[in-house]
Design a protein around this nucleic acid. Structure first.
Lengths: 306, 306
DNA sequence: CTGAAAGCGCTTACAG
DNA sequence: CTGAAAGCGCTTACAG
């Protein structure tokens, strides 16, 4: 039984008759370091023959940090958007020889510290943070969460709705941020102040909340939801109350998840180019040029609830 | 501007007047190594004062692998189940000083290699693998995916259904495995061979598929779905065809996702203790005792589609 | 153009 | 009970 030891720099150096330094130079294309063509090709061949792969841990120790980027994502924020975001981030990072790794769940200091201590990542991203700032570089202007909220509300206003409510889940991690953005957008559109509707998770409770809300705010003709999950609960509540959507009340979601189209009536919602935002985030975090290429703009998917 | 250098083992050693070896011994409770009580407390105090945290990368280089466990999860397998599974895995791993890190997307050899090369994890888990084997240790017997499929079918049989179809998505990563388990279960229950229904992702296409299926297999009275996503598409398709559920056809889901209860009628489904399975997986992968404590058994959540 | 040497921060035989 | 030393696999001034 042969012990299948993994090839190391030293092995490559020995097999190609040069020093470890030289091997390292050719492998990393070290700037300001010239290598004779013959040496380079010889080393490269040996690398291939031996199946040598640099040892990430050793490299990380020497370089001070690993070529890993950690994305922290809170439970409540997982969804369609985050999945696409992860995909874009991942692909772009991989293209630049870095690897993305995701941490789900609580992102508190203790958990974060344990992860960072074990990994020493090149960079850390917090999905909540990105959500807060809208995932775009500051100067990309109208392309953050704030702008998207405006898009949602603007769509409703265009259809003649003026008394509008903002529906938030009762445990929205970033509820306050969202509310602030929405209020600003309503202001900018010249709409009366947004009404607030809090939607519990449970179906019966959600329905009861909608019922109470209808009684308290009879003038509301449209509801802009925090995301599709909330929108779908509102639509269901309205339905369970025997109300018609959009006849009695219009509803617009946010995030275009996979269930909106399955409901009856199918949900009108806002689609965001999360993958594009992920790519931009990757370039930004790596300090790469072109970190300002804008993702596609968000769009309203007109289905049947508005 | 003071450079905030992170405290190192050497710093702790110097500050407490002992060698690095000694500090390492007390920190790791090294077996067969006795330390005088006075030294121990002194070192521990300094550790606290300096806020010393072991450097994960250095430790990993020395130990041969980092205290990280990587979970690979394919896109199609993300869902309610996987989220809970991750939570259980994560908590149990954290309790034993390891950290879980998740890789989403393709888990092919190239991607895997890049990750492993960068991290040198203590262990690697593949969610698909777990799914295949049912997440339980072999000997836990009736507690794998196979058993759960049996539970789903058994529930239908109990209600008098005999001609049953298995509904799979057209891109099920582990579709064949599932089909095999289901066929075996049907056999064991003495049911006639399962019919096959493939459900496309798009609503209209799904409805068309259900319609064609009804024509081809008029005797089918119940459909067991691969998961709630598929079940919900079938329910929607039947609804769009003007059919009644469960009157014209019963449907049972799998995985108890968050949307089943929101549909009308609410979806009957199978709930699995994914978190428990995650905990077991953590103990197994760490080679810990008690890796055979069985998770709670799966249960049918009776709502209104059967 | 190439190599010898130091060092990243740890752990662990080994010697005392 | 404690310490000096080697070494995990790399990269990078520095010298030649």
């Amino acid at each position: 039984m042969v012990e299948e030891r993994r090839a190391t720099l030293k092995d490559v150096a020995a097999a190609s008759g040069v020093s470890r330094a030289t091997v390292s130079f050719v492998l990393n294309d070290t700037p300001n370091q010239t290598i004779s063509e013959v040496t380079r090709t010889r080393v490269l061949r040996v690398v291939r023959e031996l199946g040598y792969k640099p040892h990430g841990i050793a490299r990380a120790l020497r370089e001070g940090s690993s070529r890993i980027v950690v994305l922290f994502i809170e439970s409540g924020l997982e969804g369609n958007y985050s999945r696409s975001y992860i995909r874009g981030l991942d692909e772009e990072l991989a293209a630049h020889d870095h690897v993305l790794v995701v941490r789900h769940g609580p992102t508190g200091p203790a958990a974060a510290e344990q992860v960072l201590g074990a990994i020493n990542p090149r960079a850390v991203l917090r999905f909540g943070e990105a959500y807060r700032t809208g995932h775009g570089p500051e100067d990309s202007g109208g392309d953050g969460l704030a702008a998207y909220t405006g898009l949602q509300l603007g769509f409703l206003a265009e259809r003649g709705h003026t008394v509008i409510a903002l529906a938030l889940p009762d445990d929205a991690p970033l509820g306050e941020v969202r509310r602030t953005f929405a209020r600003r957008a309503a202001d900018a559109l010249g709409l009366p102040p947004l009404r607030d509707l809090t939607v519990p998770w449970d179906r019966a409770a959600a329905t009861a909340a909608v019922e109470a809300f209808r009684r308290a705010e009879p003038a509301v003709t449209a509801i802009a939801a925090h995301d599709d999950d909330v929108a779908l609960r509102v639509v269901t509540g309205l339905h369970d109350l025997g109300l018609r959507v959009p006849g009695d009340c219009a509803v617009i979601g946010f995030d275009d998840n996979e269930y909106g189209a399955l409901f009856t009536p199918p949900l009108t919602t806002v689609h965001i180019d999360a993958e594009g935002h992920g790519r931009v985030a990757a370039r930004t975090v790596l300090g790469l040029p072109g970190d300002d290429v804008a993702p596609a703009s968000a769009q309203v998917l007109t289905r049947q609830t508005v």
